[in-house]
Amino acid sequence: MGLLNRVGVEERLAAEELGTTSECLCHEPWESYYILRRGILPCCHGSKPIAPMEDFERAWNAPALQEIRKHLARGRLSPYCLESTGCPIVQRHLHAQRTRERWLPDRVRTLGKLNRLLGGKPARLYYRLVRALS
């Protein structure tokens, strides 16, 4: 156990038992709801209303809100969220994306270069494998 502890396995198991290993991107659409003069918003950073103010009873489970929840439950930001650029979570996501795009080489171009350097062998192997599997 001592060795396990040293490599952090115990902590990892404890975190799994406590359920703290995975973190939903945002809880707001499950826990918050905004009935505002400009309409119903799923969170205070929502870009546009999903329903008029008067529809507050029905809009809690409206298709637009279900769509947002569906994306977040799968660990993604919904198109609605991505349009809500005032949201700090979205801002951070967009910033990370921009940083990635700036520093990471284009995947297709890099693989093409690598293939040429190795005389085209990786591509031939890949297609042979695909044919065999199909």
């Binding site: 905004y34 505002l36 809690w60 279900q66 929840r69």
Partner: peptide, 12 residues
Amino acid sequence: TVLSSLPSTLGI
């Protein structure tokens, strides 16, 4: 995605 619970925070 369809909730039977209600929001714990209500924006007004």
